[in-house]
Structures are given as structure tokens and as C-alpha cells.
Design a protein around this nucleic acid. Structure first.
Length: 817
RNA sequence: GCCGGGGUGGUGGAAUGGUAGACACACGGGCCUUAAGAGCCCGCAGUCCAUUGGACUGUGCGAGUUCGACUCUCGCCCCCGGCACCA
């Protein structure tokens, strides 16, 4: 016998049916061609709450509020044509739970969102669709925004920004001019990375270790070109030192340290035998110099100008024409030619033959290395290939065959040798970095115009600040030319300009900025997104900066994260921003893979559309599932069936909350458990352990379901408040169903007795020799009672023993043999 | 090669010195149902013995510290990420 369709028997509403042995939630709706089963929680009108929250301004951060501020930042997306990725949904939902809990705790929370809409992806997408980017971008932004809202993300939309808005990029250009004025933005003819597919130059950071473009995957080439560069190298040490003052996770720190790649080198001068020439080799390991048996110079090294041998020059010429990638790719057979010259190692007077080989690069050190085949793998291969002598100078971690260094440890030997070489005047210490200056111009249409005018008389001149922004002209045809000239060069009227210095005829710079330009400083603009006179007002910056928590992807650590730290430091030095570091805390999230464990991609057919999940199960299911998937910082694969598990949980929450006997008094067990749950949710959010947070809520529900009579209204309400950060819609709906008229998200985080939150272990584990043998109720005389246990006696036998008793935890009887 | 993070059931994972496997998925069994779906209940590391139940093994491998180790220490193997013929 069933109670089907008997509504309200337990105070349930439409869509929930109680059967003799449980409940069910089902609903169907007409979709035009028939009846479709809908799994969405039918009782939550998500759209109604989205509107209501927005109308009430529930998510607004208040300037000048007395409450303590908390600036929570997530990386703003490039609004692609594909719409929101479930990866965005994962990290933003988790941070949304963080923001919501902080608000309930009484913080004035700033959790903003905007759009990083300039750059190659937007332009390539527009080209593919045959539409102008200025039309595509707003459409994509609208889609993204709607998707964010559908997920219940509590962004403060009144602070929304868009990097392609002239009122925004006016200030991106303003920052460029400040850099230019300080000599930190400069033009130079340099060898740059060129992507033939995207037809533009790239920064070093945009080229992956295998030589391909990080965006499109095409192999890049090197070619010389006149470019705008930003002098990030001037900040290398500051960027390193700054890392000591912030709370970044270890992987983030190490990646930045590796990328900056600070090392102490020493440049050693060797006389060249029979000439007045000298050759300067550079090394980080001068301790091994007693083992040097040859010198290798890069093709293109100036010393080769003194060489007449045709074979040598031909080899050098050929090698120089090869790409760098080709020259240094691993496992390649060593090639090289003897130049006929010898250098003198002044340490021991030995004559070292000078070779030229393609694996030595002009761009590293001084373009000349000293070959120590006894200790270096690469030098060893070279020596083997050309039958050069090999001397061993390091044994274990001690120096041998090295004169005054013998017996010293490597580190000591390095500094002793450096001191010695400097004293003798043969060498000079120098700090070198892996980091190079940032190539900052692109030969593309869809970016911020670089605000410079080239005057034949005055050279490059900054556009006066009162004439900013230099607006991007509308071009119908904006395809990249591939010649290295920007499409903007075709806008003849726009290019023509008067020189701001002398008033004479001049030309505008036609290169644009890279897509990283707008994201360098976007978190500052959220503070004051309509300010027409400054980046943001001083007061607002002082109130909100620095960012308390910055959450984003691991793929941006040597790109955006490093760039924005550099720009922010510069702005601090010229007195614009109040602190030296922009982000107090940085954590990364893992990417969401397809169900097959591969990266989500159209070509694999494994893409999950968040809209689909929201339609089928509701936003709260998607949010909680994504938090539950696995550890937040770790890569995780999607699972369709695991989503169902979270959906089941929410259905149970619904039924239990509404069927609770409100007049019932909560038992002490129920109170202790809810105190523990609230404490756990709070602590797990702070530690970004969202997976165990969800698990704890599930555990509570499981207990509640088997003890329905123990839970009264007070505990139900605390549960709903605890649920509010992770499932904002369900919590809001239930809160109102319980008779409240105010939003659940305006409530205070539930208070609990900390003593209740500590779980008391009632059963004590009894071990014999460290192995669990029995369990005994805690209480008086527990040691004696435990010793009397049959199981314990059996394992002790008649042996003498001693007792380890950790009160409240464990008893261990250890036999003495 | 250097640096960072990891390795736990069929699967995702939990436990950071005190009962290994919370929570969830998958799987198996049962109830309910005309049926399907949904829901509810039970089982679920392995091996062996067994009537209730019990013994042994088990967190990549090998040692060590400890009354007690997934957790700490040392050595090794493997996976993921960063840097790199960087001299």
C-alpha cells in the first residue's frame, strides 16, 4: 500500500511523493513533441532567485564599509565562442562557496568578474566565423555572463570590466606610456619567436619547451625584427625577492623561480695563442676548470673573423642558418670543426684547442664554453666524438686533480675558484637570468594600439595622456599580413598623425599590444571601473588592495602571473598602487578532463556543456559535484554517474528538511553533529578542501536519514545555513519554505559550541603489540577492564607486559620478551 | 640532469603519528512496483578457516625510527608538472 500523491502529508510540496518505504521526486514536462522526464529539482525556481539576488544587490561589495574587507579574485576568462567550460565552473563555484561563507562571517567581500576579450583567440574565432571581432565579442560576453548567473555565482556585476572597452584600454595605454617614460618600454631589433600559423611575433613565455606556440600548437621560428620590448629583466631580482613576502603554493613559487633562472656565472678570459686576441668563456662551474681540455665557440662568435680556413667558415655559416630548435634538440649527434686556434688555461698553462659547434648558442652566456668532458655529459659526448682528452676532476662530491681545490666540496670549490680568478684578474663574476625582456608588440588587429607616434625628427613620441585612448580604428579587412606589418598600417587616415613634440607630420605605431596587456592590471579596475581620471581612486585602492586570495590556472604562472606582478611593482614604484605585491595568496586548481581522461576537446567528442547539466539536474548539483570530484588542486576526469550521486544527496536534503518534525526537540547527538559539520565546512573552505566538505554534508544526511526523529527545527536551520555556500539555490528555497522571508545568504554563519564540535571517541581501541585486538567503552578503570578482555588475554598469554595508554584514543599492551 | 608535486580497493578519493579505505561511483543481493524509472534496505580490499565468528596479508619497492607508520628518516622505482645540450 502506498501513499502516492498524498501531498503535504509530511509538509512536502509538489513533486515529492512519499511511498510506504521512502519517497520519490519525479516530474514531467511537455517539451512540445511529448513528455520529457526532467531531473531538475522541480521545486527550486532558480531564475526567480537569480533575479531577486541581483535586485537586492546581495553580492555588491561596499566601498568604505566598516566591515573587514576580503578581496577574492579568480582569473577572468577570454570569452570564447564555445561558452563556459566546466573547468571555469569548477574553480568559480568553489571560490563562490568561499565568498558566500566569508560574507556570512561578516566580511565585506569583493568577488568580481570581467572579460579578457582582446587577443589572438578572439580574432581567429571572428575570422573563422566571418564576422568582425567587435561584433563577436559582445555576443560571447553575453553568453558567458548568462552562464555565470545560471550557476548562481555571486559576482558583483556592478564592477564588470571588458578589456576591449576604450574606457578600459585607455588605462592600459596609460600604463604603457608610464613605462615608456621611464625607459622600460623600448624598441629594439631582436631575434623574436614567429608563429607562421598566427602570423605574429610571440613572447618567450608563449613558446612551449618543445618550440610550439602555446595557443595554436604550431612550431615557431626565429626571425630578427624591430619590436617593442618591456624591460622585465630590470625587475628580475625584485620579482624573486617578492616571492618571499607572499603566500604562494610551492609549485607556483618554483615555476617562477625556475623561469627567472637567476644564476651566478663567471666570465673567464683566455689569451689566444699566437695572436693578440682574447676569448671570454662563461661558466657557472669554474671549480671544474682544471679538467678543461678544449673550448667551443658558437657559430657567429667574433673570434671566427680571424679564421681563414674555408671549412670552418662553411660549417659556421650552415649552422647559423639552422633553427635553434634544430641545433639543440636532444640526442643529436655532436658536430663541430677545429678552428686551428688555441686558448691558454692560465690556471695550469695548458693549451686548449678552440672548436666551433652548433650546440653552443650566441644567446647564452658569452657564446663560448670551456669543455670539461670529465664532468659534463654534453662535453663528454663532444670529446668522445672528436677524440679529445678526458680528465676527471670531481669524485663523488669532492674535487680531485684540481690543485688548490683538491678535497674541497663542490660549493666551496666554486666560490674559492671565483675569488681566485677575480683576484688574478682573469675572471669576473656576473649574474645572468633565464628571463629575457618581454616582446610586447603584435602584428595583429585585435589588440590595444600602442600609443606612440613616430616622428622623423623627434623619433618615437608618446601620445599625450589627455589624448588617450588611441582608439582601435574599425577595419573591415583585418587579416594578418604575414609580412611582419600590422593590419593597422592599412588604415592610412588613422596612421597619419601630427608629432606631439614638434607638430610635424608623423606616423602612428601600427603594432598592437599582446593579449596579456589588459590582464596585467584588471584587478585594479574592478575597484573603480567607471573612473575617468585614474586607473582607480587612491582611496579605493588603499581600501581593497592587495588581493587577499587569487585563484587561477597553473598554465598562467610564467605568463600572466609573472607579468602582472612586474607591472604592479612598477606601478608601486611610481606611486600609483599602495603595495609592492598584488596578490597575498595564490592557489591553483587542477583542470577538468573528459570522462575518457583526455583533455576536453570537440575533436574527441568529450566536451561537457555546463548548461546541459544545469538543465538536467540544477545548478546546485553541478556546483557540488564539481567540488566533490577530487582535491581542488588536482586534475580530475568527469564522471556522468558520479553527478547522479550528488543529485541524490540534494533530493534527500530536500525531503528531510521539509519532513522534519519542527516541534521536535533536537537531541544532543543531533546538536553535536551539526556543530561538527558547521565547523568542518568552515575549516574545509578555508583550506580549499571542497571535496571533504561535501563528503561531510553527505555523512550528516546519512545519519539524519536513519535518525529522523532526533532533528528539530533549530538543527535543520543550521544545516541549511551550512549548505548555503555550496548549494545556494536549494538553501534559499528551503530557508523560505521554513517560513523565513529574508534571504538565507544574508544570515550570519551559524554559531556553535566549540566543545560540541570536538568529536568524543566513546569506544577505545585496545591493541596488543600494536595490533588491534578489541574495543572497550571509555570510562573509569579502562586499563583494568581492557586487560581483562578475553581477546587481549589470548594474545598476551602469560607474558609480562607494559601499558601505553593515550587517554581518549588508544590502549596498547606491549609484551616484554 | 636540476627543481616541485604525487603513487592507497574495480573507480574518484579519505585519513599527516593512534581502528587504513570516510564520502561517492560502479557492481551484487533484497524490498516496493502490473512494469519501467525513482526510492528504500543489505553487502562490497585480498586470502584462508568458519555456525555465531575468527586468523593472516595489505597504502609503489627495500631498510630504519617508534609501544604504534599511508603519515617521520634514508636508499631505490614509477607517474605528473616546471626549467634545460644554460655551459
Amino acid at each position: 500500500m502506498t501513499n502516492r500523491n498524498k501531498k503535504n502529508e509530511f509538509g512536502l510540496c509538489d513533486g515529492v511523493r512519499v511511498t510506504s518505504n521512502g519517497y520519490e521526486i519525479t516530474t514531467s514536462r511537455s517539451n512540445g513533441s511529448g513528455v520529457e522526464r526532467v531531473y531538475n529539482l522541480p521545486m527550486v525556481d532558480e531564475e526567480k532567485w537569480i533575479k531577486e539576488w541581483e535586485n537586492e544587490g546581495l553580492h555588491r561589495a561596499l566601498d568604505g564599509d566598516k566591515k573587514q574587507k576580503f578581496y577574492l579574485l579568480v582569473e577572468f576568462p577570454y570569452p570564447s565562442g564555445a561558452g563556459l567550460h566546466v573547468g571555469h565552473a569548477r574553480s568559480w563555484s568553489a571560490m563562490d562557496a568561499y565568498a558566500r561563507k566569508k560574507r556570512m562571517e561578516g566580511y565585506n567581500v569583493l568577488y568580481p568578474m570581467g572579460w579578457d576579450a582582446f587577443g589572438l583567440p578572439a580574432e581567429n574565432y571572428a575570422l573563422k566565423m566571418g564576422v568582425h571581432p567587435s561584433q563577436v565579442v559582445p555576443e560571447n560576453i553575453a553568453t558567458f555572463k548568462k552562464q555565470c548567473q545560471a550557476l548562481g555565482l555571486s559576482f558583483d556585476w556592478s564592477r564588470e570590466i571588458d578589456t576591449t572597452n576604450p574606457q578600459y584600454y585607455k588605462w592600459t595605454q596609460w600604463i604603457f606610456i608610464q613605462l615608456f617614460k621611464k625607459g622600460l618600454a623600448y624598441q629594439a631589433e631582436v631575434s623574436v619567436n614567429w608563429c607562421p600559423a598566427c602570423k605574429t611575433n610571440l613572447a618567450d613565455e608563449e613558446v612551449l619547451a618543445n618550440g610550439t606556440h602555446e595557443r595554436c600548437g604550431s612550431p615557431t621560428q626565429r626571425r630578427p625584427q624591430k619590436q617593442w620590448l618591456l624591460k622585465i629583466t630590470a625587475y628580475a631580482d625584485k620579482l624573486l625577492e617578492g616571492l618571499e613576502t607572499v603566500d604562494y603554493s610551492e609549485d607556483v613559487k618554483m615555476q617562477q623561480v625556475n623561469w627567472i633562472g637567476r644564476k651566478e656565472w663567471i666570465d673567464i678570459t683566455y689569451p689566444v695563442v699566437g695572436t693578440n686576441e682574447k676569448i671570454v668563456v662563461s661558466t657557472t662551474r669554474p671549480d671544474t676548470n682544471f679538467g678543461a681540455t678544449f673550448v667551443v665557440v658558437a657559430p657567429g662568435h667574433p673570434i671566427l673573423q680571424t679564421v681563414k680556413d674555408r671549412k670552418v667558415l662553411e660549417y659556421a655559416q650552415k649552422a647559423e642558418n639552422k633553427s635553434e630548435l634544430e641545433r639543440i634538440s636532444q640526442g643529436k649527434k655532436k658536430t663541430g670543426v677545429f678552428t686551428g686556434l688555441y686558448a691558454v688555461n692560465q690556471l695550469n698553462g695548458q693549451k686548449l684547442p678552440i672548436w666551433v659547434a652548433d650546440f653552443v648558442l650566441m644567446t647564452v652566456g658569452t657564446g663560448a664554453v670551456v669543455g670539461v668532458p670529465g664532468h659534463d655529459k654534453r662535453d663528454f659526448e663532444f670529446a668522445k666524438a672528436f677524440d679529445l682528452p678526458i680528465v676527471k676532476v670531481v669524485d663523488g662530491d669532492k674535487m680531485i686533480n684540481s690543485g688548490f681545490l683538491d678535497g674541497l666540496e663542490i660549493q666551496t670549490a666554486i666560490s674559492k675558484m671565483m675569488d681566485y680568478l677575480e683576484r688574478k684578474g682573469w675572471g669576473k663574476r656576473i649574474i645572468r637570468y633565464n628571463l629575457h625582456d618581454w616582446v610586447f608588440s603584435r602584428q595583429h588587429y585585435w589588440g590595444e594600439p600602442i600609443p606612440i607616434v613616430h616622428c622623423p625628427k623627434c623619433g618615437p613620441v608618446a601620445v599625450p595622456e589627455d589624448q588617450l585612448p588611441v582608439e582601435l580604428p574599425y577595419l573591415k579587412k583585418y587579416e594578418p599580413s604575414g609580412t611582419g606589418e600590422s593590419p593597422l598600417a592599412k588604415a592610412a587616415d588613422w596612421v597619419k598623425a601630427a608629432c606631439p613634440e614638434c607638430g610635424g607630420p608623423a606616423r602612428r605605431e601600427t603594432d598592437t599590444m599582446p593579449n596579456w596587456a589588459g590582464s596585467n592590471w584588471y584587478f585594479i579596475r574592478y575597484l573603480d571601473n567607471k573612473n575617468e581620471r585614474e586607473l582607480a581612486s587612491k582611496e579605493k585602492m588603499k581600501h581593497w588592495l592587495p588581493v587577499d586570495m587569487y585563484q587561477g590556472g597553473a598554465e598562467h604562472i610564467t605568463l600572466h602571473l609573472l607579468y602582472s606582478r612586474f607591472i604592479y611593482r612598477f606601478l608601486h614604484e611610481i606611486g600609483v598602487v599602495p603595495t609592492a605585491e598584488p596578490y597575498m595568496k595564490r592557489r591553483t586548481h587542477g583542470i577538468v578532463l573528459g570522462a575518457d581522461g583526455r583533455k576536453m576537446s570537440k575533436s574527441f567528442g568529450n566536451v561537457i556543456n555546463p548548461d546541459e547539466i544545469v538543465r538536467k539536474y540544477g545548478a546546485d548539483t553541478l556546483r557540488m559535484y564539481e567540488m566533490f570530484m577530487g582535491p581542488f588542486g588536482q586534475m580530475v576526469a568527469w564522471s556522468d554517474t558520479a553527478v547522479e550521486g550528488v543529485y541524490r544527496f540534494l533530493k534527500r536534503v530536500w525531503v528531510l528538511a521539509l519532513s522534519a518534525k519542527h516541534e521536535a526537540r533536537s537531541t544532543s547527538e543531533a546538536k553535536a553533529r551539526i556543530a561538527r559539520l558547521v565547523a568542518k565546512i568552515g575549516a574545509d573552505i578555508e583550506a580549499l578542501k571542497f571535496n571533504t566538505m561535501v563528503a561531510a554534508a553527505m555523512e550528516y544526511i546519512n545519519w539524519w536519514q536513519s535518525h529522523p526523529d532526533e532533528v528539530g527545527k533549530d538543527v535543520v536551520e543550521k544545516f541549511i545555513l551550512g549548505l548555503a555556500p555550496m548549494a545556494p539555490f536549494t538553501a534559499e528555497e528551503l530557508w523560505h519554505k521554513l517560513g523565513h522571508t529574508d534571504s538565507v545568504h544574508k544570515q550570519k554563519w551559524p554559531e556553535y559550541d566549540p566543545k560540541l564540535a570536538v568529536e568524543k571517541q566513546r569506544v577505545i581501541v585496545v591493541q596488543v603489540n600494536g595490533k588491534v585486538r578489541d574495543r572497550v567503552e571509555d570510562g573509569v578503570d579502562i586499563e583494568q577492564r581492557a586487560a581483562l578482555s578475553d581477546k587481549v588475554k589470548k594474545f598476551i598469554g602469560g607474558a609480562k607486559y607494559r601499558t601505553i595508554y593515550v587517554p581518549g584514543k588508544i590502549i596498547n599492551f606491549v609484551c616484554l620478551t
